[in-house]
Nucleic acid binder design. Structure first.
Length: 839
RNA sequence: GCGAAAGUGGCGGAACUGGCAGACGCGCCGGACUUAGGAUCCGGUAGCCGUAAGGCUUUGGGGGUUCGACUCCCCCCUUUCGCACCA
């Protein structure tokens, strides 16, 4: 018996996999496909054990599916554009490209040392022209269809990153990357019209039943559909979801940004003062304004408009809590039925009129202002002809009435905004647009793509778009008229890169198109996708959007890119996320050196369910290492006994009790592990089941002397008397080695070879569950008396309910509790439990 | 504030559709083998009472449904996450 030397065997098998191109695949219509993907990596420098966890989940699934006969695509690549590379360049003078490519090389080595079964020949990096060329190609298609457009607008600006951020990239009022509070800027920006797909993206969430509910909820909230109506109060159009309360509208509120504000200022007695007050609201910190921390404030514009339903004249105010970018930027104030309007009206003494009564008792209409607004639906009152209608009914009738009178229209409003993709930074995809005096905005023709990112040497990190300072890049000729023209100098948001890479993996070397329809139709959609929950409304909504764009371009027939999503929990150290700046990074290479990749892999799978956050504990890894030692010893000690030819299948043999028990455990373990892996993805309990099997195997082998303990002693042949014993031990050990292989592939391959098998575990296939073998002959059934466990009876597996009841009542333990009492009832839960009720 | 998920030993966590709570591992305690062990093997390990057999209590707290509740229902507490004036 040799010692377990993970470093040696891991190297051996990793080399073998590379040599035999074990994980490279091509389309094969004769086999079911399985596309397994983990979110690709930003090459920040070093992988930590948090990355390892995500990649392991995918690797276990990929390896399992291979063993079960699937044609498995399991690729990996690099989300290689991004700010850290540029910042590193500014700080150290290393070119972003150098920095990025070096990091990729290092991290790739780390992943290879973990033995992840990637199809490395499909590796891609988004910073290479072979990739970003297709970003430009797709942008051009979207430009042609009006899905990419340019406009001036107020955008989110991160002072630290010196660039624009999309709405999705503003987290709690700060930059998603660095947390710096976001400010507003007015800029010319390129947008992608994701709102075109708002409704489909929303409805599509219903079909994503295997996604975590949490992610779906976040996406639904983000898209934020509201059904309501636009109604004109003279020239001011408001958006409301509660037109049923319009008779209670006693004022109108404008956002400080509303286009009418400046005109009203000009018409007011004190234009300068008016302007100043509106401006003060506008410059209120957006973050505070958005989070509702700012007190509701406003002022009367002096302007009056007619409520089109009551015909009353009501005042127009400007209010700091009305959002300029949502709806029409104007709302009707219904203080009786909207909490915000209520606070506002109370503060400024505006009239409050109740027009909806609580549904059950319409006659008990509220006539006085209560502690707050009554925002629920009810029965409409004080509303002319509409009195007595339910809110639901009034919504319809009033909308109809407004439409008939030409003063309003039923409409749907989304919270989702178009995706601003212009970035004023260097390390990204150049936007393939040329500005010509004569022809205006011209897309770079496909045959001139890629627009290559010029090699810049100096990075200041200040000012606008670095590319603007490269004359050789900026100055060009118009593709249409040939006259002098200049190029767009902004680059694309890196989330463009990650929004379609999963399709590129299907056809990574295509130099005619981003991918061929045939290949994506074969591999797509991704069957199993795993990554961090932080992308719930960034990457995951953009990718869904792009998938629909590709479909509408006729390039795929796929509506949704990710059939199943698993959001894995983070690995913490000292209660905090691992990061270089905190200095709490656990380096997988350290762990591999000490315990081997297999132990590390096993531990991250065993420590907790994949979705849960976990705290990294070194001792736990040691435990996993000890388990592998135990497996190693078990198999190496018994290999001579069970290896080789001529051992019959245990199903055909007459087994004794111990043999039958082991066989039952073997097959019960196969059943549990199989189910835990697929579809449940409870990797931790699958590992526990394997540990139980190992424990039972040890006892069995020791009791029945299967181990050959002393190799130097020819008398210790380690051979048991019964061939039956050897047969069931062999079955158990082989099933164990195969089932552990998705978790710890190196040791599994090594042991499989040691057991005289050629061809590797993937060729051997996943063990078959035999329900007959797993069946017990007798059952031990617990017996409760008045709800308390009082005894156990052993019955034949096919015993009838009557027999079980009789056995339970005959049990002496049970009788001590039933003696002298009346048996009221006996419930037999077949195969599970007997419950006796006595009085 | 609104919404969602979760609360189980010293710790990470099991318990499939209501049926033996605490699987598996870590840690700890004891034993065996050892020059030694932080290696390995075996055993113990929710709490309380009891020498023991055994008994009682126990899945955040309180009620309820049920022969039976970690699991279902109601109220409350705590934690985490998401949304946060979207009219």
């Amino acid at each position: 018996m040799s010692d377990y030397k993970p470093q040696t065997i891991e190297k051996k098998w990793q080399d073998a996999w590379t040599r035999t191109r074990a994980f490279e695949v091509t389309e094969d219509p004769s086999r079911p496909k399985f596309y397994c993907l983990e979110m690709f990596a930003y090459p920040s420098g070093h992988a930590h054990v948090g990355h390892v966890r995500n990649y392991m989940i995918g690797d276990v699934m990929a390896r399992l599916k291979r063993m079960r006969g699937f044609n498995v695509l399991h690729p990996f690549g690099w989300d290689a554009f991004g700010l850290p590379a540029e910042n590193a360049a500014i700080k150290n003078g290393t070119h972003p490209e150098t920095w990025t490519l070096e990091n990729i090389a290092h991290m790739k080595g780390q992943l290879q040392r973990l033995g992840i079964s990637y199809a490395w020949e499909r590796e891609l990096a988004t910073c290479l022209p072979e990739y970003y060329r297709w970003n430009q190609w797709l942008f051009t298609r979207m430009f042609e269809k009006g899905l990419a457009y340019k406009r001036r607008s107020t955008v989110n600006w991160c002072e630290s990153c010196q660039t624009v951020l999309a709405n999705e990239q503003v987290v709690d009022g700060g930059c998603w990357r660095c947390g710096t509070p976001v400010t507003q800027r007015d800029l010319e920006q390129w947008f992608l019209r994701i709102t075109e797909y708002a409704d489909e993206l929303l409805k599509g969430t219903d079909a994503l039943g295997t996604w975590p509910e949490k992610v779906l909820t976040m996406q639904r909230n983000w898209i934020g559909r509201s059904d309501g109506a636009r109604v004109k109060f003279d020239e001011i159009e408001v958006f409301t979801t509660r037109i049923d309360t319009i008779y209670g509208a006693t004022f109108v509120l404008l956002a400080p940004e509303h286009p009418l504000v400046e005109r009203l200022a000009a018409e007011s007695p004190d234009p300068a003062g008016f302007h100043k007050r509106a401006q003060a609201f506008r410059s209120q910190d957006r973050t505070a304004r958005m989070t509702g921390d700012v007190e509701k404030e406003g002022f009367d514009t002096g302007r009056r408009v007619i409520n089109p339903f009551t015909k009353e004249e009501i005042p127009v105010w400007i209010a700091n809590f009305v959002l300029g970018e949502y709806g029409t930027g104007a709302v009707m104030g219904v203080p009786a039925h909207d909490q915000r309007d209520f606070e506002f009206a109370t503060k400024y003494g505006l009239p409050i009129r109740h027009v909806v009564a609580p549904a059950p008792s319409p006659e008990q209409a509220l006539t006085e202002a209560g502690p707050g607004a009554m925002a629920e639906y009810g029965v409409v009152i004080n509303s002319g002809d509409f009195d007595g209608l339910s809110s639901e009914e009034a919504l319809k009738r009033m909308t109809d009435a407004a439409e008939q009178r030409g003063i309003g229209k039923g409409t749907v409003q989304f919270r989702l905004k178009d995706w601003g993709i212009s970035r004023q930074r260097y390390w990204g995809t150049p936007i393939p647009i040329i500005y010509c005096e004569k022809d205006g905005l011209v897309a770079v023709p496909d045959d001139q793509l890629p627009v290559k990112l010029p090699k810049m040497e100096v990075f200041s990190g200040r000012g606008d778009s670095p590319l603007a300072s490269v004359p050789g890049f900026v100055n060009t000729t118009c593709p249409t008229c040939g006259g002098p023209a200049r190029r767009e100098t902004d680059t694309m948001d890196t989330f463009v890169d990650s929004s379609w890479y999963f399709y590129r993996f299907c056809d990574p070397h295509n130099d005619q198109l981003p991918f061929s329809r045939e290949k994506v139709q074969y591999w797509g959609p991704v069957d199993f996708y795993s990554g961090g929950v932080e992308h719930a409304i960034l990457h995951l909504i953009y990718s869904r959007f792009f998938a629909k764009v590709f479909r509408d371009l006729g390039m795929t027939g796929i509506d949704e890119p990710f059939a199943r999503l698993l959001t894995q929990g983070m690995v913490l150290k000292g209660g905090a996320v691992m990061s270089k700046s905190r200095g709490n990074v656990v380096d997988p290479d350290d762990m591999i050196r000490r315990y081997g990749a297999d132990a590390l892999r096993l531990y991250v799978m065993f420590v907790a369910p994949p979705e849960k956050e976990v705290e990294w504990i070194d001792a736990g890894l040691e435990g996993s290492f000890r388990f592998l030692l135990r497996v190693w010893r078990l198999v190496t000690k018994i290999a001579d006994t069970i290896g080789g030819e001529g051992i019959p299948a245990p199903g055909t043999l007459a087994l004794n009790d111990a043999e039958r028990a082991l066989r039952r455990k073997t097959h019960d373990t196969i059943r549990r592990v199989t189910l835990d892996l697929d579809p449940r993805v409870h990797l931790n309990t699958a590992v526990s089941a394997l540990m139980e099997l190992v424990n039972e195997l040890y006892v069995f082998c020791q009791d029945l002397h299967c181990f050959r303990d002393r190799e130097d002693d020819p008398d210790d042949v380690g051979v048991v008397v019964r061939i039956e014993t050897i047969a069931v031990a062999k079955e158990a050990v082989e099933a164990l080695v195969l089932m552990i292989s998705p978790f710890t592939p190196h040791i599994a391959e090594e042991l499989w070879e040691l057991l005289d098998h050629a061809g590797g575990v993937a060729a051997a296939g996943w063990p078959e569950f035999d329900p007959e073998a797993a069946k017990a002959q007798e059952l031990v059934i617990p017996v409760q008396v008045n709800g308390k466990l009082r005894g156990r009876v052993t019955v034949a597996v096919d015993a009838t309910e009557r027999e079980i009841e009789r056995a339970a009542l005959a049990d002496p333990q049970v009788q001590t509790y039933t003696a002298g009492k009346t048996i009221v009832k006996v419930i037999v839960a077949k195969g599970k439990l007997v419950s006796v009720v006595v009085k």
